[in-house]
Amino acid sequence: MNEINPGNFSEIAEFFLLGLSEDPDLQPVLFALFLSTYLVTVLGNLVIILVIVHDSHLHTPMYFFLSNLSFVDICFTTTTIPKMLMNIQLHSKSISYTGCLTQIWFALDFLGLENGILVAMAYDRFVAICHPLRYNVIMNPKLCWLLVLLSFLISVLNAMLHTLMALRLSFCTNLEIPHFFCELAHILKLSCSDILINNILVYVVTGLLGVVPLYGIIFSYTQIVSSVLKIPSADGKYKAFSICVSHLIVVSLFYGTAFGVYLSSTGTLSSRKSAVASVMYTVVTPMMNPFIYSLRNKDMIGALRRLISRTTSFP
């Protein structure tokens, strides 16, 4: 097959996103489904941010991290879904070479940032339950901002490293991506270059930025469970566990679906089925987060009611 010089952007005009299905009859259904999902995700997470910002009772480390998580979820879905909706509406499958690499960069960036914030939230719950008397001293605003900034810097460096490594690749004449957005794994499969270094980098970074943070979360919760079991009263145990339930559900959704897609991409699952599976962590999980944190949280429900009553009281 003929190779295309990666240094000449005019020759690599565009890639083609095949989406979740090529059936023309399914396109209106997919458009309506993803549009409604995107709107629910953006509006739901915006409400979470507004409620936290406007209610002084929620100006705590836990809700600080939650507002950042909601912001990242909005950005993450905005990186992928609008382009898919536009292509469906225009009956097009194309995405420019620059646009594809940009999408890879932002997707990796926000994925890494969400990973870091979930770890920070686990640490916050660990300190709150295992060291309650020192909670305000340990989880001070400076540390909270530092954890978010550290997550941001690590995710930016990771995204930049993978994107720069992708720039060195040359591609064959087949530029069709069996996905609804540009995912790094699919770009590597299309390349005619030697991708050994890229694959090693993917495995190493996945181990460092995926497995290690997950181990940190698991370690935090083993300590939390150990501390909660020492609480004598049943009400105390229930209250302590209830603080962690929402975070545990989000962590299970995020890591369970992300690792499921990662393992399936190295197994026998087809590329199209892998793309369908990736909808879980790229679309469904960001949409579910506001419901998980609001419906199970009395403080959030109370703050939302106060914000609504405050808004409706103005003439």
Rank of each mutant, 00 (worst) to 15 (best):
A122M: 13
C100Q: 07
V51K: 02
Y123T: 07
T257I: 08
I187W: 00
L214I: 10
A240E: 10
N87G: 05
P24I: 04
E176Y: 01
N45D: 10
S36K: 09
H54M: 04
S226I: 09
S36G: 01
P28G: 05
T79K: 07
C172H: 09
T79M: 04
L35T: 13
L209K: 12
L58C: 07
V127Y: 02
F126Q: 08
Y215P: 04
N2Q: 09
H186D: 11
F241M: 12
F65G: 01
I12C: 06
D23P: 15
G256Q: 10
N289F: 03
V53K: 04
R272Q: 15
E22M: 08
K239M: 08
F291V: 12
Y262W: 13
L33H: 09
T77R: 08
L214Q: 11
V40Q: 02
D55W: 02
L20G: 04
F65Y: 13
F254G: 05
S151W: 06
K83I: 15
S151C: 05
H186T: 12
L85W: 11
F9L: 12
V29C: 03
D124R: 01
T37N: 00
S94W: 02
N115E: 11
Q103P: 10
E11V: 10
N158K: 07
Y123D: 03
L108I: 08
M288D: 03
L113G: 00
G44F: 04
V228A: 02
L167H: 14
Y281N: 14
I129G: 00
P315F: 13
F9N: 15
N199T: 09
C172R: 08
V212G: 02
I231K: 04
T285I: 10
K273G: 00
W145K: 15
S246L: 03
P6D: 05
T257W: 06
I292N: 01
L111Q: 04
V250L: 05
L157G: 05
F259M: 14
H91E: 14
I95Y: 00
